[in-house]
């Protein structure tokens, strides 16, 4: 099980530049679907990657699905050499994206985010419209139901604001 509250608080406490995307972003916008992990896009500056590594190391990040015992060390240079990581941690599953298809990097996504206050922390989450566009562009069959729900949420939201 993923401890969303502790993970989000941890990232905010360590001043990580990140944006919540994926299923957790869908939850933020009102989705009723179950998601098992926290997906984030993180900033690729050396300082941010160093902070990200330092804050996660105490929770033993490891490559999800990889056989145990690999000489995997999660540190700033690992992040620098890679881009996207699907991790297990003692706080649950965490997916780190340096870049997402059709969405770009952290800096590209910033204008399409909203600021949320959750579990005593303030952080960025991808806006509903951009989340739909990114998921549509990914074109994965397994996302179709999720996109349909997100679009229904957008319609509900627009209906509500129209009737106000």
């Amino acid at each position: 099980m993923t401890d969303f509250a502790t993970l989000i608080r941890l990232l905010v406490k360590h001043d990580i530049d990140f944006i919540i995307i994926g299923g957790a972003a869908a939850t933020t916008h009102g989705s009723a679907r179950l998601t098992q992990d926290l997906d984030i896009v993180y900033g690729r500056t050396p300082q941010n990657m160093a902070r990200l590594a330092a804050c996660l190391v105490p929770y033993n990040p490891y490559l999800r699905g990889a056989p145990p015992g690999l000489p995997f060390q999660f540190n700033a240079s690992t992040i620098q050499r890679g881009l996207n990581f699907t991790l297990t941690t003692e706080l649950g599953d965490l997916d780190l994206f340096g870049e997402i298809p059709e969405g770009g990097r952290y800096e590209d996504l910033i204008p399409h985010t909203i600021t949320i206050n959750v579990f005593g922390a303030t952080c960025r989450c991808l806006g509903l419209r951009r989340l739909i566009e990114v998921k549509r562009a990914a074109g994965r069959p397994r996302d179709l139901e999720a996109v349909a729900e997100l679009e229904a949420l957008l319609e509900e939201r627009e209906d509500r604001s129209h009737h106000r």
């Binding site: 939850t27 933020t28 998601t35």
Partner: peptide, 18 residues
Amino acid sequence: LLRENLKLTVEQRFLKLS
């Protein structure tokens, strides 16, 4: 279900997910 979720705060939505 969506309309009920939209009445909740973001934090309440995450607690429901948990």
